[in-house]
Design a protein around this nucleic acid. Structure first.
Lengths: 150, 150
DNA sequence: CTAGAATCTAGACCCGGCTCTAGATCAACC
DNA sequence: GGTTGATCTAGAGCCGGGTCTAGATTCTAG
């Protein structure tokens, strides 16, 4: 089954511009076929490959690495070790990135909790017409609540 | 305790360029103080705030959002609801991002496993001088192994 | 007093990753 | 046989997030 660039764009969610750009960047394993009038003709395999590319991109693989990977796949047998290395390196990057995000999430959750408390207190104070008696030590609350969580 | 821009750069890991850039972008809660000769003087609070900024940046908060957050903190009491909203939105973004990365990791792990098998097979074949008898159906292995994992 | 390091401002530059434009060609429908 | 829409190429433009440069202070040590 052969597809036009517009159809591939629709199926993959990439723009036609991005598809041509990816081609220039060498991300395709096989050179994209052309019709008699020079128009691009994509196969289902191309779409499958693009799907993989999209996932790898979404996990932060840079275009040059993706291009290198495409090169290796194109070369075929004998490049498996390097592909393995490349994938393992990417796996490590993604894993550490998830770790970083998860750590950041700790701070973010803490901030959310702090502001939830403050907003609740504010609402309560507004209800009982008293200036937040349970607030405890105020001091410089707007600075203190910005303190690092560590 | 007051710090020079170089000292802050050293403590935070940001470059002096980045520090001045962040200031222009309005990321500081308080305008950075200046010495008599016009040089920047940072406080420990500035460093603490920067530490928070670095974590939020690491989790993908764009500079304009960070700047908006700094604005709200500067304005002080009465902006807690908006700060809560902002933080919750960021929390949601980070959570979905972790989800995306974790999904991607599935594919990456799968690829790693496939290449590990291939490399092992290749090594075994090399040892016993037989062309990988356990490989089963070969067909178009270099294409099939690139198939989407879903 | 002077050399070298740090800082200042304003603005140019870079990089990654697209996105958009212009002008031409081609396909399809009425 | 026009008109409309999709596609083509080459190249410019954009956005985010810094980075770097130039030229002028200013600080610090010997």
């Amino acid at each position: 089954m052969s597809l036009s660039i517009g159809q591939v764009a629709e199926r993959t969610g990439l723009s036609v511009h991005a598809l041509r750009f990816y081609e220039r960047e060498g991300l395709f394993v096989n050179p994209v076929r052309r019709g008699p009038s020079g128009r691009r003709i994509y196969s289902e395999d191309d779409v499958d490959w693009l799907t993989v590319c999209i996932i790898l991109r979404a996990s932060g693989m840079p275009l040059p690495v993706l291009s290198r990977y495409a090169d290796l796949v194109r070369e075929g047998a004998g490049t498996e070790e390097e592909r393995l290395t490349l994938m393992r390196e990417h796996q490590a990057r993604v894993t550490t990135q998830i770790g970083r995000l998860t750590e950041s999430l700790d701070l973010i959750r803490f901030k959310v909790a702090v502001y939830e408390d403050l907003v609740d207190q504010g609402a309560a104070a507004h209800q009982c017409h008293a200036p937040s008696p349970a607030a405890g030590e105020e001091g410089t609350p707007l600075l203190r609540q910005e303190a690092v969580v560590e």
